[in-house]
């Protein structure tokens, strides 16, 4: 290799590295910025309904002041799962900008059962991974819970139920067409 060639490869390498850093940086920057609640509720669809409803619940205000934001429950923490979720989100953008499927509260209501079922299915498949980022059932002190809670949580550990099996509607209003009185896991006690 001549010294000119050497210089050339060297500068290509440097430029590559710099470009890489910039691209990687902006990628992560974009990932970070789209992973905030402000970003999620910058769409009126999300601000008008899910956010309104969240404000009534324990995950928005509570005794201890620890709260959950949209991405805490809806975006995975691990990098690879997060990227997959972000790619799926591009489909949601298509519906927002092109089809306007849920751009009025009425249209939102009409689609809500379908949307909620998607979330339930995802959470079931991941064993409620996002809930478990904050709640560790092994760390729950059943003595300090209501008996109702403790009984069911012991059963959940024994029989492998997941949080969303029992806690549907924890953050938003339940959709029309879903009857909580028809849905509970387990065969329960005899008789």
């Amino acid at each position: 290799m001549t010294s000119g060639q050497k210089k050339g490869t060297f500068s290509v390498l440097i430029i590559g590295i710099i470009l890489g850093i910039i691209l990687w940086g902006s990628f992560n920057w974009a990932m970070a910025i789209t992973n905030t609640e402000e970003f999620c509720i910058s769409c009126h669809e999300m601000r008008d309904t899910p956010f309104e409803e969240l404000q009534d619940t324990i995950h928005y205000t509570n005794r201890t002041g620890v709260r959950a934001t949209c991405p805490d429950c809806h975006v995975p923490k691990e990098w690879i799962h997060k990227v997959v979720r972000k790619i799926q989100a591009s489909r949601e953008l298509y519906h927002h900008f092109i089809t306007g499927d849920i751009d009025t509260p009425e249209k939102y209501e009409a689609k809500r059962l379908h949307l909620a079922q998607n979330v339930w299915r995802t959470m079931k498949n991941t064993d409620s991974r996002e809930c478990r980022n904050c709640h560790d059932i092994e760390s729950m002190d059943f003595e300090r819970q209501e008996t109702r809670s403790a009984d069911r949580h012991e059963e959940a550990i024994d029989k492998g139920y997941t949080c969303i099996d029992c806690h549907k509607g924890i953050a938003h209003a339940l959709p029309e067409g879903y009857d909580p009185g028809e849905d509970a896991p387990g065969g329960g006690n005899e008789g």
Binding site: D151, R152, L174, E176, P180, G181, D183, G191
Partner: peptide, 21 residues
């Protein structure tokens, strides 16, 4: 609400045994 009744989660005919209510 008009759409659903949260109390029935545990007090309905179908669920009450499972929920020990």
């Amino acid at each position: 609400t008009l759409k659903n009744n949260g109390c029935m989660k545990c007090h309905s005919k179908k669920n009450y045994k499972k929920e020990k209510s």
